[in-house]
Design a protein around this nucleic acid. Structure first.
Lengths: 168, 168
DNA sequence: TTAAATTTTCAATATATATTGAAAGTTTAG
DNA sequence: CTAAACTTTCAATATATATTGAAAATTTAA
């Protein structure tokens, strides 16, 4: 298998994983393509490499720029925009995790807190059971978020390595 | 807001979160409904409570049973099947995490390992760069999986609590 | 047995999500 | 300025995913 085929396999696999985890396939593929590109590439090159439309390529690039996991790169003497990927896995993984937490976990946590507040004073068995269920999920999630915040906010995972050593 | 309304809000929120993370909305809602039910409930009651079809209710229940996060409950003198949820958040969270790792992460890790194997001997700059990219992702993921395995395999999160204390 | 109750299956259908592509908007070289 | 190069937008369309519902299969009470 040659390198180009390997790169294609990487792009396809990454796209599939994304779609299984609620990240648009094209977006994941564009990130993958940029990750395995040695040179900055333009929208036209992305369209060609992934056989996607200009609109799709543009929207995927904007989303990745918003996430802060790819960058624009100016090429002297060329009007086109070129793009490169953040290559440090830690950096981009942290950004994706933070973004998804903020966009999807935090709103759920807010609802759970509201539900706790609303049922706190309910003294029926049913009310107390509901409160407990919500509270269990809420405090479990909070613990996981706290731990992952700590791990991700420590530079380049030194904390993770320390923790791994500690518990092995 | 009364308890029934709160329960409905919980079910809706849980269904939305599921769909954002690649878990079928109905499946997530059925789990949520069982989590907030004080009594075992039947397929018909689920259909009515969530206004979903018999086929959908049945398939969602089978999936949750497969995951091992809900159980069948026999009610004496009744031919119908009744269902209850695993209420221990740790237990069901671990099962969901393990299942998704096996189904979605492990196959990706296998591809990454294959790609490393295929490009290990490539001595071109491009080949070495690709190898590094794949290796970075692969070893990062491996570290996270190792840590989460340790946390999740320790009973009811005592390890998580220990880790949290340690790093605060 | 057998027939009513219950569960399962899956082709048809509906819904949600992703993608296209061309028109509109913006930027820049000359 | 202005026209070509380039980017963005978004209604139309295509694709993927979820859901239905009725027929088939299975189970069980009598």
């Amino acid at each position: 298998m040659n390198l180009q085929t390997s790169k294609q396999k990487f792009i396809d696999t990454w796209g599939l994983l994304g779609s299984e985890w609620g990240i648009n396939r094209s977006v994941a593929q564009v990130q993958a393509l940029l990750l395995v590109s040695t040179e900055p590439i333009s929208t036209d090159e992305i369209m060609q490499a992934l056989t996607i439309s200009r609109g799709n390529a543009n929207m995927s690039l904007r989303q990745l720029l918003d996430y802060g996991i790819i960058y624009k790169k100016v090429i002297a003497g060329d009007r086109k925009e070129y793009f490169i990927a953040e290559k440090d896995v830690w950096k981009w993984a942290v950004k994706i995790a933070m973004m998804r937490k903020q966009k999807e976990i935090d709103p759920v946590m807010n609802v759970l807190n509201e539900l706790k507040e609303e049922t706190k004073k309910d003294k029926t068995t049913e009310g107390k059971e509901f409160y407990k269920t919500v509270n269990d999920i809420q405090s479990f999630t909070e613990q996981l978020c706290t731990l992952s915040d700590k791990i991700f906010s420590s530079h380049r995972g030194e904390l993770l390595l320390k923790l791994l050593k500690m518990i092995m």
